[in-house]
Amino acid sequence: MLSVIEPIVVCVGVLVALLALAAGLVWLERRLLGLWQDRYGPNRVGPFGLLQVLADMIKMLTKEDWIPPFADKPIFVIAPAVIVFTVLMSFAVIPFTPHIQVVDLNIGLLFVLAMSSLGVYSVALGGWASNNKYALLGGLRAAAQMLSYEVFMGLSLMGVVMLAGSFSLRAIVEAQQGLWFCVPQFPGLVIFFVAGLAEARRIPFDLPEAETELVAGYHTEYSGMKFGMFFVGEYLGIVLVSALTTVLFFGGWLGPVLPPLVWFFLKTFFFICLFILIRGTFPRLRYDQLLAFGWKVMLPLALLNLVVTGGIVLAKS
């Protein structure tokens, strides 16, 4: 009986924790940005403004959920769900502790890459289905950006795979017992984190929704909870990239004294804060700069990292 209940409990627990975290992140981001920009964030509703999350949720859910008459209805409705679905699916293979993991696939890392590559459809199709110039431009930008940054996101992780000798995320964490991969794979870490910023479409890579040029990019026509889905998808994306950085480069649950789950949470939380700090610091890039940077700097660096790591692994064995 226990063997039946346990996976269900893990699934539900992970789902609830993630959705709560994504909602809480909105508050955290506004408070932290306030702190770093020398002003108060939301601090009126409840203690420390914590109930702001609830107020935002009520607002989002009760707003008119409008589908423009000129939109392609089925695709318009599916698009926001796709991003939430793909990001949540990626969490299925993330090992939170030695015991809490939904499923341990031997192609775990590839599964995450596959899901992140499918996330592109959400923004591209959302932009197309809106039948609006700005949304279409945003969708096009998103598709080009995510497609090109995906290429070296995958390549930057192959060094980790070589060192661990497996695609399974659990095996990768266990291979970091002696030394976290952030030391031997430092270039890989930097490239992955930059690619992660682009995949999550965060400043400085938030061109698909650049509000000064494109109104709101691909979600211009979206309102109510459909917009909320894009929003939640973006925040879940931040959590996912932070969790992946922790698992792949910073030893996942490994750490002294404290229980594994706490270590995992602390490390992930650090990277989430880093995401927010980057948002508060950098200006937005120009579009051609973004693509040129990706193909001319990051891709060669990722390839070089791959060759050097491969050479060292071969020489050692």
């Binding site: 192609i107 590839l110 599964f111 890459l113 596959a114 590559s117 499918l118 592109v120 459809y121 591209a124 199709l125 932009g127 197309w128 279409l136 969708g139 096009l140 598709a143 080009a144 497609l147 995906e150 995958g154």
Partner: peptide, 23 residues
């Protein structure tokens, strides 16, 4: 492994390019 590559390369990359062109 073949399943993952099918999704990454065909569904995740080639079809995105098709959609991109159609858009």
């Amino acid at each position: 492994f073949a399943a993952a590559l099918e999704v990454i390369i065909y569904a995740g990359a080639i079809m995105v390019l098709f959609i991109f062109v159609i858009m």
